[in-house]
Design a protein around this nucleic acid. Structure first.
Lengths: 234, 234
DNA sequence: CGCGCAATTGAGTTTCGTCAAAATCGGTGG
DNA sequence: CCACCGATTTTGACGAAACTCAATTGCGCG
């Protein structure tokens, strides 16, 4: 069992949201001073290290989170106990939207890379979303983004040969504007693509042999994006 | 190319929504008389026959739909041109939620069984959702429902052996309270489970041989739910 | 009745999973 | 600094599952 939550720094009201470097994307960036008066619980910033668990399937919860930096996996478990990663959440993504409708989380949220989060009380989000059109629209957009991601996850990462899936995953993990990407454990890769760790390993080995990817350092690769695109299309 | 839209019957204002037999689930069931005054475009009821296309990927659109009865598939296309069914929409499901955020549809919506829909202008939904807390909450719930379905689609219908996927699909298609289900073309089944039509056919044949399902009449089956559950768990 | 399309079945090939062994990596302690 | 340990990753050999291609059957409809 892993420790659940680590460093947490309470924010002094709304100033931090107001001045937030992520204003354009953070959930509360469009709020008015009036809105903030309705928030009774402080918005907190959380930092989690790899392996730490934000919440588990079925946990009762009262918070939504915005990812400021890092990478979080959302996991569900199959009847046979194996895990399936159903989503990867990165900067500007909102985790735990289901709190606006449910009282319990639908996934297990586990940190893959050191992650900074903003934590919002769900009551505040629910209430303000009914009066503030900007937040209302933001939430809809977030919901739609998650849904689009889910569709892409299905069509690109869960359909076709292992090679195609892997190529799609690599292209998705590329830092935009560059051709580099970080990878995580073979087990996680397998649980994303629905393949075994052996197949994951073999596919990566083959890609390296074909010079589709070059290992700069441990789990950090430089990709031949053109060639990978060819595999995806082929 | 298929005809796009057939019979469409304009509704005389809000009375029909108010008296609607699906009041508890239809999108506008919780609206007040005031709300209805803001709707300039009539709400219409659409009936579509199997094979008809409600909209296509990238179509510009101004409407959301509630499924009253029937079955609609939402399809996306892969780079190689093959189709993947990413969702099945049944009674009480809302089609085209993305219209609240986008101007174009994300999928191709094709009718599998004769389907009755209620058609709502998106402007009305967007506007009223900001003032009517009931609709606001309904929309959130709908969004979450779609998301849950997407997760289940991934974990149950796109993971594991063909037998497990098929068993999961059959159990999902069962009319609740009974043990009967309708099936559609092997091609559609394949495009749901991400398997070939041959594998789909073989799996069904095997299930029939093992008495897991009995064909009452063409594509209408009586299922051994217990046994299918065992396959899913195994 | 026969045409056309969908579904089924069969045979051979490919891909992927399984099991096992070897190699590599990271951290620990002598 | 090096040896050692456990965990992860890689690689190999084999078998099972699914895909491909092709032939056959079955069904609806003119």
């Amino acid at each position: 069992m892993v420790k659940r939550v680590t460093s947490m720094q309470a924010w002094e009201g709304y100033k931090n949201c107001y001045d937030c470097s992520m204003r354009s994307s953070a959930l509360f960036s469009g709020l008015t001073e009036q809105d903030f008066e309705h928030i009774h619980e402080p918005i907190e910033q959380v930092t989690l290290k790899p392996g730490e668990v934000l919440y588990k399937v079925g946990d009762e919860g009262h918070h939504l989170f915005t990812v400021r930096s890092g990478l979080v996996k959302l996991v569900q478990y199959l009847p046979d106990g194996t895990q399936r990663i159903v989503r990867l959440m990165r900067s500007t993504d909102v985790i735990g939207l289901e709190m606006l409708v449910n009282t319990h989380y639908e996934h297990e949220a586990v940190v893959l890379r050191t992650t900074e989060l903003c934590r919002y009380p769900k009551e505040a989000v629910m209430q303000i979303s009914q009066t503030n059109p900007v937040l209302h629209k933001d939430l809809m957009a977030q919901w739609q983004k998650v849904l689009n991601d889910a569709d892409a996850w299905l069509t690109k990462l869960s359909t076709g040969s292992a090679k195609k899936r892997m190529a799609n995953l690599l292209l998705r993990l590329v830092e935009s504007g560059s051709s580099e990407c970080f990878l995580f454990s073979r087990e996680d890769i397998g649980s994303i693509l629905s393949i075994t760790i052996e197949t994951a390993s073999r596919t990566i080995s083959e890609f390296k042999r074909l010079k589709l990817m070059r290992e700069i350092r441990s789990n950090h690769f430089d990709l031949d994006i053109e060639a990978l695109n060819k595999i995806v299309e082929g």
